[in-house]
Nucleic acid binder design. Structure first.
Lengths: 138, 138
DNA sequence: TTACATGTTTGCAATCATTACAAATTTATA
DNA sequence: TATAAATTTGTAATGATTGCAAACATGTAA
């Protein structure tokens, strides 16, 4: 919790309870949460929490580079704690999302067909290892 | 126009006027259109056109593999005629979207961290060649 | 040609994620 | 303690998309 507080302070965001709780939720490993998911999870602890606050806070975090917003999952925006760059894999069967350490760093800060590439986003789809195993055993 | 008709027929979709017009619009090179954009463009020619028809038609085309839906551009879904796989580049300055012939085919139909990869989606951001040139000349 | 079944299109209402905004509340500061 | 500033809330608005039932068009068989 102290660590989270420091993250906020380092980004000049005052660590209010709500902000800390939201950050805590996103900070758990392998989360790719929607605003609604976060809201529903925290509502229990903080009954006065408003969804607008969740949206506001997520926007603040994103602006300050603490989290990343992923627009690649159909209509809902998903948020994750910013960390080393990686690809995202979504299983077509179970819908689970996995982070994948990806080997495409050679693209960053380079030129492609005359355009200067700053960022890359890689999204993979297929069948995840869990679902593959289930099929084998069936 | 005959070509478009054949595309529909080959996918067992009867080539009604509306469907042909919508397909024609998407078939133009380098389009990454939203449903609304298509609707507004065709409304002039087909005054009775309804937006629901545009959505219905796009969904039909997508199901039949004629077009691809891109969810990566913030909130709006964009559609493009299905063709050879490629990456998408969006310019941070002018917002224009470019297709990029991409060199990542090695990923397809392969395995990564235990998951079976079927599809990949690559999204790049940066400054496009046009905007770069403008900056140089300024 | 008519009548019916089928497929297509329409228009409107509903949904869902997100944002705008102003009021209420809390916190920090003088 | 009073006041300013920041934070949070609640509600209404927006915008993309979907559901649905009615209207319309088309093809087919009698």
């Amino acid at each position: 919790m102290e660590e989270l507080k420091n993250i906020l302070k380092m980004h000049n965001i005052s660590p209010s309870l709500h902000r800390l709780k939201i950050l805590e939720y996103i900070h758990r490993p392998y989360t790719h949460s929607t605003a609604d998911e976060i809201f529903q999870a925290l509502e229990k602890d903080i009954p006065t929490l408003s969804k607008t606050t969740v949206y506001n806070t997520l926007k603040t975090f994103e602006k300050n580079g603490i989290i990343s917003a992923l627009s690649i999952f159909e209509n809902e925006t998903r948020y994750e704690f910013k960390k080393q760059e990686h690809a995202h894999f979504k299983c077509e069967k179970c819908g689970e999302i996995f982070d994948i350490a990806h080997p495409f760093d050679f693209l960053k800060e380079t030129e492609l067909e005359g355009h200067f590439i700053k960022n890359q986003l890689i999204y993979l789809k297929g069948i995840c290892r869990n679902c593959l195993q289930k099929t084998e055993n069936a």
